[in-house]
């Protein structure tokens, strides 16, 4: 009985959390259109989330490209399909690996950062002070951050894609003697807008989800300083899960519009 009660409670909490998050998202859309617009804070957040995450994304992307190629090579050689490496890696990275890996990195870095930052502001009552002083904390803190992640993530994804393809091309050049020109010719020969547009579009949603969850967890942080750590932690977990969920939805929807 207790077990069932705990399950029911878990479901109820999950639904409540989902509802609160949806309400939070609704408030974001309401606030994002209303002036005044916090451009300066938006640019600052874009810098924090875009430029500051770039190196991490580049290093990760490069390693992903190297590893993917090194791991795939023996199998492709076994099937006599070594020349298909650029096609395979190009499509895998642009369609799926690039956006998802970049989003997960950003979920780890950005969502936790936002969660911790807003959480500590909530705990130290800075947000309350902003409300008292007549500044709309939601617009200043949440809208700017969510917009920044939404706008920056596609750019980070494209940087990650390019550097991952470069890493893969480097391995093909060193191990298989394939020129960079031939490699990228084959990659772009294999790619179509059906690969590129859905991947870029879903990157916006990944960014939105990461920013939204980070802000949500930080904005509603409670229980003192311990809550700050919990907010940062749950923000990462929830953002990562939602990235996969959004990815599934994106693939499902793009399958309708583009022949995969």
């Amino acid at each position: 009985m207790v077990y069932i009660q705990s399950i029911v409670k878990g479901i109820r909490d999950f639904l409540a959390e989902t509802g609160q998050l949806a309400f939070f998202a609704g408030r974001f859309f309401k606030e994002v259109l209303k002036p005044p617009y916090e451009f300066r804070e938006l640019l600052r957040q874009c810098y924090q989330m875009g430029n500051r995450s770039l190196m991490l994304v580049l290093v990760t992307g490069f390693i992903i490209g190297l590893v993917l190629t090194l791991q795939s090579r023996p199998t492709l050689i076994e099937f006599g399909a070594e020349s298909w490496m650029p096609n395979m890696v190009g499509i895998s990275i642009v369609r799926e690996i690039g956006p998802v890996i970049t989003a997960l990195i950003c979920a780890g870095r950005i969502a936790s950062g936002i969660g911790a930052e807003l959480g500590s502001m909530r705990v130290t009552e800075q947000i309350d002070a902003m409300e008292v002083s007549g500044t709309n904390p939601f617009k200043y803190l949440v809208v700017t951050r969510v917009l920044a992640t939404t706008l920056m993530l596609p750019l980070l994804v494209i940087f990650g894609d390019i550097i991952a393809l470069y890493g893969s091309a480097l391995i093909e050049f060193l191990k298989g003697g394939m020129s960079f020109q031939l490699y990228f010719n084959k990659v772009f020969d294999a790619l179509s807008f059906g690969d590129f547009i859905p991947a870029t579009t879903k990157s916006f949603f990944f960014g939105f989800v990461i920013g939204l969850v980070g802000c949500y967890k930080g904005y509603y942080c409670k229980k003192g300083t311990a809550g700050v750590g919990k907010a940062a932690n749950t923000a990462v977990v929830m953002a990562s899960l939602l990235v996969f969920f959004v990815d599934f939805m994106a693939v499902f929807i793009s399958d309708i519009f583009y022949e995969l």
Binding site: L43, C46, Y47, N51, P154, L155, I158, F159, F188, L191
Partner: peptide, 26 residues
């Protein structure tokens, strides 16, 4: 910071455009 952000955004946008052009050109 804004200059760096500008470089980042311009470069990223250019990359998107180049990629779109390469795919479209093909």
């Amino acid at each position: 910071q804004f200059v760096k952000l500008g470089v980042f955004v311009v470069l990223g946008s250019l990359l998107i455009l180049v990629m779109a052009y390469m795919i479209g050109n093909d």
